[in-house]
Structures are given as C-alpha cells and as structure tokens.
C-alpha cells in the first residue's frame, strides 16, 4: 500500500509536468511571506485611522477610500504617474530608437558612445536627481549659465508645478534612455538582414523599408520598453524626492512618493495604505493587459 503510493509519487515526480511546479516553491514562499502578507496587512490598515506609529487606532470603514476619491493630491499624483510613465515611454522610444539606429552598426566610436549613453541608466535615481538639480537650479544653474550666453535672463525652471512635472519626466527619459536603446539595438540586431536586402532589391526607399519592415519587426521591443517604462513611472520615487521633494505643494508627487509622504510625514497611514491599495488595483489592471500580451505572444510561438 505504502509502496504503491511511493511509486505513484515517484511517477508523478518523474513524468507529470505538474510536478515541475514544485520548482517555483522557493520563489513562491518568499513571495507569499514578503509580498502577499504585507499587502494584506496594508489592506487592513487602509480601513483604520492609524497614524503610522502609535500602538492604538480605530477602524473607520471605507472612509479613507471615500476621501481618496475627493482628494486633489491623489489625482494629481495619479496624473503625474501617468505622465512620468507614458511620457517617458514616448520620449525614450524616439530617443532610444534614434540612438539605436545610430549605434547598431560598427564604426569607430560606437562602443564608447554606447557606454556613455548607458552609464546614467545604472546610476541611482537619487543621484541622478541631485546631479540634475545643479543643472536646472536657478542660482548658478548650468542650464541658466548656457541661456545666459544667449542673453536670456535666468529662469527658475522648477518653480511651476506642471513645468516641473514635464522637466522631471524629460530628465527621467534622458537619464534612462540607455535601457531603451539597448532593447532597440537588440531588436535591430535580431531583424534578419535578408529583409533589408530583399527590400532594397524591390527598390524600396530607406524610409519605406524603415516604415514597413523595421518598425513592425521591432514591435516586441516597443512592448518591452513600454512595460519597463510604465513600471519605472509607477516606481518613480528617488528622482522626485531629489528634484522637488514632491513640491511645490503636492504638484510633482508620483503615487509612490505621495504614499510615502502621506504615511510618514502626514501621519495618515490608513489613508496612505488606501492609496497603496488603489495603485495596486491599477497595477493589476495593467498587469492583466500585460498577461494578455504574453498569451498572445505565446500563441504566436506555439500556434
């Protein structure tokens, strides 16, 4: 009896593909303990008026979620998050694709240039923020020094909320476009040369070849960079903190930095957790769309 069970078990291990799922165990355990559990406890906090540090608090039902709907700063942060995510995607796609086209084929300065473009992508957001602060700052700012040469009087670049959001988005795009560039270089390298040769034999112009051959074949690269940039936008924290600390007012906060500020500085842990859950739901929606894409891709390979 026991033997038969053992035998069945070893058959299961040996041949049943379901057994392979056991390989995910270490990852799943870590994931449950350090991600799922904290999220559930965050959900619990979101129904309280906890200040984030006291040993006592009371439950306030869905009050925090109601507040969230009418809170301007939450919606500003949500909009900013989209600007940071989608705006960076747009700028980086143009910039990254251009750089990739320039740096895909071999020439003398290719290696050096690639490295220089990629280096900022490896630097912490906080540091990037501090460095760029010295460029866009009013007093002795490097950018103002330059426009001064053309006789323009200095500008206090980050003083207006919307302009500051755009500048942060641009800095994020420029600093991290190395990542997009690498993805596109990889994409271009995987476009078989024969397509281009066939096109040039057919007499297609450079632009036509680019429009009808390169772009469609680069679609997977576009999608990957979209995914990575949206994640980057959602996680945007260090850059905002270093450049403006979310100000003026709440004008430049991303969801991430707003959650942090609400939790610790404003001492509204319950409300902050509600924003966290709200962004989590939003993220899940994005991730469902992403899963659709993965399934679609899967069918392309296996179907």
């Amino acid at each position: 009896m026991v033997e038969a069970k053992l035998k069945r078990f070893s058959r299961f291990l040996y041949a049943d593909p379901r057994a392979l799922t056991l390989l995910t165990l270490p990852a799943v355990v870590l994931f449950s303990v350090f991600v799922v559990f904290p999220i559930i406890s965050g959900l619990n906090i979101s129904f309280t008026n906890w200040n984030g540090y006291s040993q006592s608090y009371s439950y306030v039902g869905i009050q925090n979620y109601k507040d969230l709907l009418f809170n301007d700063s939450v919606w500003t942060a949500f909009r900013n998050t989209l600007v940071y995510g989608l705006g960076s995607t747009a700028v980086q796609t143009v910039l990254g694709l251009g750089l990739a086209m320039l740096l895909v084929d071999k020439f003398f300065l290719r290696g050096v240039t690639r490295t220089i473009v990629y280096i900022p992508a490896m630097v912490a957001q906080l540091v990037i923020g501090y460095i760029w602060y010295f460029i866009v700052t009013y007093e002795r700012g490097a950018l103002n020094d330059i426009i001064n040469l053309f006789g323009v009087s200095p500008i206090d670049w980050m003083s207006k909320g919307n302009r500051a959001v755009l500048i942060i988005m641009l800095i994020n795009s420029i600093a991290y476009c190395g990542k997009t560039m690498i993805i596109f270089i990889a994409g271009l390298e995987s476009v078989p040369n024969m397509y281009h040769e066939a096109a040039s034999i057919d007499g297609a112009s450079g632009w036509q070849a680019f429009r009808h051959i390169t772009i469609p074949l680069l679609l997977p690269a576009f999608t990957t960079s979209l995914v990575l940039n949206i994640i980057g936008g959602l996680k945007m924290f260090g850059l905002v903190i270093a450049m403006t600390d979310g100000g003026p007012g709440y004008a430049t906060h991303s969801l991430s930095s707003l959650i942090n500020t609400m939790y610790f500085a404003n001492q509204r842990a319950g409300f902050s957790s509600a924003i966290g859950i709200f962004s989590f739901i939003f993220i899940m929606l994005v991730s469902i769309l992403l899963r659709r894409y993965l399934e679609y891709k899967d069918q392309q390979y296996n179907g």
């Binding site: 207006k160 979310g246 007012g249 709440y250 004008a251 500020t261 500085a265 404003n266 001492q267």
Partner: peptide
C-alpha cells in the same frame, strides 16, 4: 503630523 501640511501648503502658497 500638522507639520507636513504646513510644509506643503507653505510651498504651494509661495509657488
């Protein structure tokens, strides 16, 4: 906890 609100409203006012 009000300090944070004084900071953010102060910043928003001067801006």
């Amino acid at each position: 906890g009000m300090w944070a609100t004084m900071r953010s409203t102060g910043g928003a006012l001067t801006a």
